[in-house]
């Protein structure tokens, strides 16, 4: 029998998520070799960026960043990036094209929850692997050590989770455009390309031309990578900076949540009108 009532609904929800995450985790376990390769692929870009900046900073600090600061920054990028990956647009596109969206739409749970569970099941273990690698590296390489400050680390975790949520909703909402176009994944790639600069992947934002960094501040990009990394590595120090950062994250989370709901209801309607 279906458990009725609000308390029952929460319990059902919890059960649904537990099972969705379990299934996702078991499937990931089957693909562990492939996932290991994706991990390698995910860390090469920050390593190469670090290599270049390390060379550039040979003569001294660049824009306030010493070699050590660069090392800590890019290790942070590798970790936060792993926790904020966004691949759902490709799944949505494939499901709509191959008719696998249909059974997801006739189940008593919105498709987004399967995606959220999938994300958590994947990112939890893999981010932990990167974190472990960082800890091991810091034993042999003093440059990447970060002082142990539980308070700041806790805040960093919050910032990373918020960043992951923003980027997830951003990717999912853009991916839902597949209800209308076959080029939804191209849009996601376009945003990704821009984010290389504006989110601080290629270089810390303070090293960008001032006008570019200024533009970045108006968009969500800094809040999905630069801010969490800076909290983690201790670049964010004053209360004002913390407040601005977290406020920005919450605002953009709300914006992308609304955009997701908008695209989902419109998209669902469009799908119901013209089919797959």
């Amino acid at each position: 029998m279906i458990r009725a009532g609000a308390r029952g609904a929460v319990a059902v929800f919890r059960d649904q998520y537990a099972e969705l995450m379990r299934s996702a985790f078991l499937i990931d376990l089957q693909y562990r070799a492939s996932i290991a390769i994706w991990l390698i692929w995910g860390i090469t870009e920050p390593i190469i960026s670090l290599g270049i900046w390390w060379t550039i900073a040979a003569a001294g600090a660049v824009g306030g960043y010493s070699r050590e600061a660069f090392a800590q920054y890019f290790f942070g990028v590798a970790l936060v990036n792993q926790a904020t990956l966004s691949w759902d647009a490709w799944n949505i596109d494939r499901w709509i094209r191959e008719g696998e969206m249909n059974y997801r739409l006739t189940r008593p749970i919105a498709p987004i929850h399967e995606a959220i569970a999938d994300n958590i099941a994947y990112k939890g273990p893999t981010a932990t692997i990167i974190l472990t690698a960082w800890i091991v590296a810091s034993v042999f390489w003093p440059a990447v050590r970060i002082p142990f400050e539980p308070g700041r680390w806790a805040l960093a975790i919050v910032a990373i989770v918020l960043a992951a949520a923003i980027r997830f909703l951003n990717g999912y909402a853009t991916g839902l455009l597949a209800f209308w176009t076959t080029r939804a994944t191209a849009l996601v790639e376009l945003q990704f390309g821009i984010s290389l600069f504006l989110s601080g992947r290629i270089a810390p934002l303070s090293l960008l031309p001032p006008r570019v960094a200024h533009v970045a501040g108006y968009l969500w990009f800094p809040y999905v990578l630069s801010f969490p990394v800076q909290v983690l590595t201790g670049t964010v120090t004053t209360t004002a900076q913390y407040v601005r950062g977290f406020a920005g994250q919450l605002i953009w989370l709300a914006i992308w949540l609304m955009l997701y709901l908008l695209v989902w209801t419109r998209g669902r309607r469009h799908y119901g009108a013209v089919g797959g």
């Binding site: 458990r3 059960d15 969705l20 299934s23 089957q30 693909y31 059974y103 189940r107 008593p108």
Partner: peptide, 21 residues
């Protein structure tokens, strides 16, 4: 296909049990 491809059908049963409460 609605069965989870890489896992035994038993896993899909478990999942559906939770999804349908």
């Amino acid at each position: 296909q609605q069965l989870l491809w890489d896992l035994p059908p038993e896993e899909t049963f478990r999942l559906n049990r939770a999804i349908y409460g």
